[in-house]
Computed example of a mutant assay.
Amino acid sequence: MTTKKAYKILASLPVYGPMYVSVTESGEPFYSEGFPVRFYKNDGTEWVANFQPGWTDFAEIIEFEKTQNLLVIARGTCYIMNPNDTKPIDVFGVGYCNIFKASKNRYVFQDQIDLTIFEQDGKHWNTERISWDGLAEIKVENNLVSGLAFYPMNSAEEWIEFQYDLDTKTLTGGSFYSF
């Protein structure tokens, strides 16, 4: 038995058929082309969402193991969606540029100055600020996230190591509180 996918990422908004549904954090209509996705409802019907994008080029959809909800990453902004509903369950972020899988079915989203940890139950939280302006070489091993944080305050413009423990929510290193 094959299971039908609940969505399809589209190259552009369709020119024929029913009007797309704007999906935004505020609920206000969005008329420019954003991140278009076709959703297939349980009753066999379908609808097209036009997600208002964030500030990056990062776009992806993640399926969850124990629910039909999806995590739609629309160019840096995250939307938790149920394919049967046109309104998002939750919206967060605007500048995510990468995602990593961590232990306990968690995801770690990389922004330019901090991280967001997303739990399988839909809860999410941000770390404290780690960098003045940039994170690099991010690695996730079990419950530890490590990498480099940019420090532009001297002529060397150096990168300072950091480590973040997802379980204890403890930051070691980083550049934001270095001086």
Rank of each mutant, 00 (worst) to 15 (best):
V94W: 09
A11G: 05
E33T: 13
P88R: 07
R75N: 15
I160M: 13
I62Q: 14
K104P: 06
E60G: 03
I9Q: 07
T77N: 04
K4F: 10
N98G: 09
I73H: 05
V140C: 09
S155H: 12
I113F: 13
P36Q: 04
D90A: 15
K87D: 10
F51Q: 05
T77Y: 00
I62N: 11
L71C: 13
K8L: 14
H124Q: 14
K101F: 11
V140G: 06
V140Q: 05
E65T: 08
F92S: 05
F58H: 06
G27E: 02
V72F: 06
I117E: 00
G93H: 04
L166K: 02
Y31F: 14
P152A: 11
A149L: 08
I138V: 09
N142H: 09
M153K: 13
K123A: 11
F100T: 01
N50I: 12
F51A: 07
Y177G: 04
Y96C: 07
I99P: 01
Y151V: 10
T2A: 14
V91L: 04
A102I: 03
F51P: 00
E158P: 02
E141Y: 01
R75P: 02
P29Q: 01
C97T: 13
S12G: 11
T170G: 06
V140R: 02
G147T: 06
S155E: 14
G147N: 06
D121G: 07
L171F: 10
F179E: 11
A6T: 12
N126S: 13
N126P: 00
G174A: 00
S12H: 13
Y96H: 11
A102T: 06
P83M: 09
E157M: 14
L144P: 01
T3L: 15
G122L: 07
V72E: 05
L13F: 03
W132V: 14
V23A: 04
Y107A: 06
A11D: 11
A102E: 10
F30M: 01
E128F: 00
S178E: 10
W47Y: 10
N82K: 02
Y79I: 10
I9G: 01
L70P: 07
N154H: 04
G17V: 10
Y164R: 08
G173S: 05
Y40C: 02
E119M: 14
E28V: 09
V140A: 09
K4N: 08
P53C: 00
E141A: 15
G95V: 03
D114L: 12
G147P: 03
E33G: 11
Y177R: 01
G174H: 06
Y40D: 00
A156I: 03
R129Q: 14
K104Q: 15
E157T: 12
I99C: 08
A149S: 15
F100P: 01
D43S: 08
G174I: 05
V94F: 12
S155W: 00
P18K: 14
L10R: 08
P14H: 01
T24W: 08
P152E: 13
L115K: 09
